[in-house]
Simulated assay, not measured.
Amino acid sequence: MEIVTGMKKITFGVFLLLLLSSFKLEASNYTFGVRIVGKGKPMILIPGLKGSADTYNDVVAHYKDHYTCYVITLAGFAGQPASAELNHPLKGQRDEIIRYIIEKRLHKPVLVGFSFGGTLAIWIASTRPDLIGALIELDGVPFDAGIEKNHVNMDSIRRDARFRNEKIIDAQADYWQHVDSVRHTKKFREQGFLDMKELVTDTTRINQILDWDDLSDYKASRLMVNEMNSLDLRDSVSKISSPILVLGSWKGWVNFKTKETVAARYQKQYSPADKVTIVFSENGKHFLMYDDFNWMIGEMDKFLKSI
C-alpha cells in the first residue's frame, strides 16, 4: 500500500513508522502516562498512590460519550517509568499536568483526583485556579496528617521529610534491589492483601491494586509519598475559585469509629474553599469507585449537571 504526501510516495509501513515516531516524540514531553478516551468536554482523572489509569475504567465508561477523559498514570506508578527528578518529583508532576492542560488547550477541564491523586489535584487547582473548571475529590484531602491528628508540628514534619529524602536519594542500588526482592515475596503480598482489606472489599480488586504496586518503582513512590507528607494545602484551597465536590469514606479511616468524627475533620480542612460540597458514603471503604460505585457516580452526575 502506498500513501501520497505532497509530491512524495511512501509505503504504508514507513508511514506507520512516522506516525509512531511522532507519537513517541509528543509523549516524551511528559513523564506521566495519559490515556485519552471519549468525546466532549475535557475531564482529567488522577489515580491514587501507585495506581494505574485502569482505576477509572468504570468511570470512563460512564462519561466517555459526553467527556473526553484524559486518564493519568503518574511517573513511577503501575509500570509508568519514573521521572529523573529526585528532589521534588511530586511538584514535577503537578507542573507537567499544568503544562499539559495549557499545551493541549484543554478549556476548563473537570479535574478528578482519588486519595493521593486527590491531594495532587488540589495542588494543581490551587496553583492555577484559572485553568480548572471543577474539582472532584474522591476521598482526597488538603492535608492527610491533619485528618489523623488534631495537632501537627509542620516544622518537625518538613525537617523529617528533608532527612528522609536525603536517605532515599543516597541509598545505593543494592539497597533497592534488596527492597524489591522483599516486596515480591509471598509473605509481603499476603500482608499487603490484609492491609488492603481495610480499604476495599472486593478481593479481585485488591489483587489488581497489589499488581499495580508490584509494577511501581519503589524509590520513586517513596520520594513522592515523602513529598506529599510534608504538603499542607489547607490554606491553599481558598485559592480555588471553581466548585468542589468532595466524596468521602469514613470506613477507610481505621482510627475513627464514626462518620461524624471524620466528616467534622473534612469540613474543617475544606472550610476555606468558597464553593464546596462534601458528601459521605454510608457503605464504601476508601476505594469508592469499587466499593460504592453507583452512589459515587450518582453524586458526580448531580454535581456536574449543577455547574
Rank of each mutant, 00 (worst) to 15 (best):
I102F: 07
T127Y: 05
M300H: 01
K268A: 06
R164G: 06
L231T: 08
I278G: 06
I97D: 04
V182L: 15
L19R: 12
F143C: 04
S181P: 02
V59A: 15
Y270A: 00
S83V: 09
H151P: 01
L111D: 03
D144S: 14
P129K: 02
T204P: 00
T261N: 06
K64D: 08
M1A: 15
F303M: 04
D232F: 03
L131W: 01
D232G: 06
L90N: 03
Y175D: 06
A75C: 04
N87T: 13
G133E: 04
M7G: 12
F23S: 14
S156W: 14
L86W: 00
V59C: 09
I307Q: 15
I10R: 12
M7A: 13
I98G: 10
V59I: 08
K275D: 13
Q80W: 08
Y100W: 02
K149T: 12
S28A: 13
W212G: 07
K91E: 10
K239D: 15
I72G: 05
H184K: 09
S249I: 03
A134V: 06
W176G: 03
I122M: 13
P89H: 00
P243F: 11
R205G: 00
V179A: 10
V37I: 13
K108S: 12
N57E: 09
I10S: 08
L199Q: 13
V60K: 03
Y30F: 11
T201I: 10
I44H: 08
K91H: 12
Y30S: 05
I36Q: 11
K186L: 15
V59K: 08
D235W: 04
K186F: 07
A263G: 00
L18W: 14
S306M: 10
K64F: 07
H286A: 02
V112M: 01
M296Y: 01
M289I: 05
R105Q: 15
L245T: 02
T68L: 02
S52Q: 09
H62R: 11
S52V: 01
V200L: 11
N283E: 09
V179R: 15
G140K: 11
A134F: 10
I46M: 02
S21Q: 03
D65N: 15
K186Q: 13
D291S: 04
Q191G: 09
S21T: 08
A145T: 10
I147N: 02
S52K: 09
L90A: 02
A161M: 11
D195R: 15
G118I: 05
R183C: 08
R205A: 12
K167A: 15
R35V: 00
L120S: 01
T261C: 04
Y218G: 12
P243I: 06
I102E: 14
M7I: 15
I122H: 12
D214R: 14
A134C: 11
G118E: 03
